[in-house]
Simulated scan of single mutants.
Amino acid sequence: MTDNRVDPPFIADETPMLHTWLDWHRETLAVKCAGLSEEQLRLRSAAPSTLSLLGLVRHMADVERHWFRNVLNGENTPGIFWSDQHPDGEFDLVDTASAEEAFARWRAEIDHARDVSAGLSPDTVGKQQRRGADVSLRWILVHMIEEYARHNGHADLLREQIDGVTGE
């Protein structure tokens, strides 16, 4: 299994520390999915849940898009894999979904997130509010680390269920 993660430094300034931890968690999701077939990536956790590794990748593409494109950068982009008609489409609609497309879209959103946040202070305030309040880049980065960490725990259990692979 390919593991391209770079361990976060033990000592660093806040901004590189946050970005490195976020990248580590992004790559952890990739590691959890590495080497699996599309069919394996689509396998659900346990009924009635629609959780799958492919669904997690699709979900995180939408999460990256929302926080970095919309909240931080002020873009008004719709969801990639969910819509008003399918609010959980990233999870529910994986039966015929393309893993190649999902990973490409996810990676593209990560690249865009890196581009729009590069060089910004963690005190930078996003161009869109959330629940009527301003949101700093610091908050977005911490939230994204939390979001990935939680879902990587799900991914770890899903991967172990599929083929017994466990790990950090």
Rank of each mutant, 00 (worst) to 15 (best):
G74M: 02
R65I: 05
A133D: 13
K127W: 08
E64N: 13
P48H: 10
A46I: 15
S49I: 06
D92K: 07
E39C: 02
M1K: 02
L141H: 09
R5I: 08
A102S: 15
A97S: 06
F10M: 08
S52Q: 10
S52I: 09
N70K: 00
E75P: 12
C33N: 09
D134P: 04
A149R: 08
N76P: 02
V165S: 15
R58T: 08
E109W: 00
G119E: 01
R58D: 03
P78N: 10
L137S: 07
L36D: 07
A61Q: 03
T15M: 03
E101I: 15
D134S: 06
V94I: 12
L29Y: 08
T28N: 14
G164H: 14
H19K: 02
A61K: 01
I80F: 03
V31M: 00
D156M: 13
T15N: 01
T96P: 00
H151E: 05
V63L: 02
P48M: 10
V71G: 00
D3I: 05
A30G: 11
Y148E: 09
G132D: 14
T20Y: 00
S49P: 07
E90L: 07
P48S: 11
S52T: 14
A30K: 12
E101N: 15
E101A: 14
D123L: 12
G89R: 12
I140M: 13
G126M: 12
R105L: 13
E146F: 01
T50W: 06
R44S: 01
E100Y: 10
V165N: 13
